[in-house]
Every structure is written in C-alpha cells, then in structure tokens.
Amino acid sequence: MDLNRNIKLALVGDARVRKTSWVSRQLYGEEAPDYTPTIGYECRRCSFSIINLGTVTFEIWDISGSHSTAQDRAKWIHDSDAAIIMVDLADQASIENVVYW
C-alpha cells in the first residue's frame, strides 16, 4: 500500500491558548519564546514517513483566535480534513468558548 497523503489540519481556539507554540514544539522541538499574535493564519507542513506505507504530510493551518477575523475563518477552515480545538485549562472562558469553534 502506498499511503502518500496530504492532510489539512485546522488548529483553532481562542487567542492566547498557545496554538502557535504547540506548532513550534511539534516542528522544532521547542516553543516560541515570545507571544506574537497570529494575524489571519499561518500554514506549516509536517511530514511523517511510515514504514511500508509512505509519507503523511500535515498541512497545519494555525488560525488566529482574534474575533476580528471571524468572517474569514470559514474560508480558511473550509475543506479541512481534521481540526484540533485548543483551550487553556487555566482559562475558564477558553473552555466555555469551545462550543463556538
């Protein structure tokens, strides 16, 4: 079986739940040192080789949690294969906002 596949992964959640830091940790092994809000979205690729199956490439769309971009989010999330909704367990509001994502 030859799996070679691209998967669009939308990473969503309120601003400041550390979505970008999670992506940085997955790709580079370390978190982003300073908080810089994502404007719009950032797209990064992360590939994994699976023995005897091929390569899976995740196209990670780190989508801004800012309310000012709410109108554009539907366009960016469209045709995603998967999504991760991130929350900050120390921030009750981010937990309650999961239903909006």
Score class of each variant (00 low, 15 high):
residue 37 P to M: 01
residue 42 E to P: 00
residue 29 G to A: 08
residue 45 R to H: 10
residue 57 T to E: 12
residue 32 A to R: 14
residue 52 N to W: 08
residue 39 I to V: 15
residue 59 E to G: 11
residue 83 A to H: 04
residue 10 A to S: 15
residue 10 A to I: 02
residue 66 S to W: 01
residue 88 D to F: 07
residue 17 V to E: 01
residue 75 K to V: 11
residue 14 D to Y: 00
residue 89 L to D: 00
residue 69 T to R: 12
residue 73 R to C: 07
residue 27 L to F: 04
residue 15 A to S: 14
residue 43 C to A: 12
residue 44 R to W: 01
residue 3 L to T: 09
residue 20 T to N: 02
residue 95 I to D: 00
residue 35 Y to F: 14
residue 21 S to A: 14
residue 5 R to T: 10
residue 55 T to W: 08
residue 65 G to D: 07
residue 37 P to I: 08
residue 80 S to M: 09
residue 30 E to N: 11
residue 28 Y to P: 04
residue 98 V to L: 06
residue 22 W to E: 09
residue 84 I to D: 09
residue 60 I to D: 04
residue 97 N to Q: 01
residue 42 E to C: 10
residue 47 S to D: 07
residue 38 T to I: 06
residue 38 T to W: 04
residue 23 V to M: 06
residue 82 A to M: 10
residue 7 I to S: 02
residue 40 G to I: 01
residue 6 N to Q: 14
residue 83 A to F: 12
residue 32 A to W: 08
residue 88 D to G: 06
residue 80 S to L: 06
residue 29 G to Q: 04
residue 11 L to H: 06
residue 71 Q to F: 13
residue 13 G to R: 00
residue 9 L to R: 06
residue 72 D to H: 10
residue 21 S to F: 04
residue 5 R to I: 09
residue 31 E to K: 13
residue 82 A to E: 05
residue 67 H to T: 13
residue 47 S to Y: 02
residue 58 F to W: 10
residue 99 V to T: 08
residue 9 L to E: 05
residue 89 L to E: 02
residue 24 S to W: 04
residue 93 A to E: 07
residue 61 W to P: 03
residue 27 L to P: 12
residue 14 D to E: 06
residue 26 Q to K: 13
residue 13 G to C: 03
residue 71 Q to G: 15
residue 62 D to S: 07
residue 81 D to A: 14
residue 53 L to Y: 14
residue 24 S to C: 09
residue 32 A to K: 15
residue 36 T to C: 05
residue 41 Y to A: 15
residue 71 Q to I: 07
residue 43 C to K: 13
residue 83 A to Q: 03
